[in-house]
Design a binder for these strands. Sequence first.
DNA 1: GCGACAG
DNA 2: ATCTTGTCGC
Length: 177
Amino acid sequence: MAVLLEYPSMRLIKYGYASAPPPIPYVPGFLAFREAPLLLKACLPVCGEADLLVVDGHGASHPRGLGIASHIGVVLDKPSIGVAKKRLAGGVVESGGEMLLVLHGQVVGVLLRVRGRSLYVSTGHRVSPRTAGRLVERMMRGGRLPEPTRIADMISHELVSRLRSSHCTRRSGEEQP
DNA sequence: GCGACAG
DNA sequence: ATCTTGTCGC
């Protein structure tokens, strides 16, 4: 699922999606091998108008410094940022009131605290760690996740729910007492 | 040996 | 991610 939002209003312009069985199982550190091909298909209708990609997952804060956020940015040749809900690699170092994500002695991202939860924001492609953090902060609208991720989650959940019930039950739109 | 391990 | 349990707010 990919959504195109206007910045800074964060209004939904349009979205794209694709569906297919997972090619391989999920293995930590290799998420892009499982999800990037389908995600790239979902991006086709919207990425041409996008100036920045916000990806659900890590970018440079990855065991080999190349998470799915970096992967997508490189393939689509767009600036990208990784926004993950859990730590994958590296550590957190406080510096000047900032929580920096450090990997192999390099600052690769920032840790944001949102509503008591952690958000691991990292460089994807052509965006510095601190700029990535600042941009994500400006895409927050009161939710636990930045608007691109939150809205994509919302729409994809609705799509899955509606598609599932219209495929496994009787005619869609019929009541179920 | 033990823990950690995006989605 | 998915699943289960518990808590809080409307």
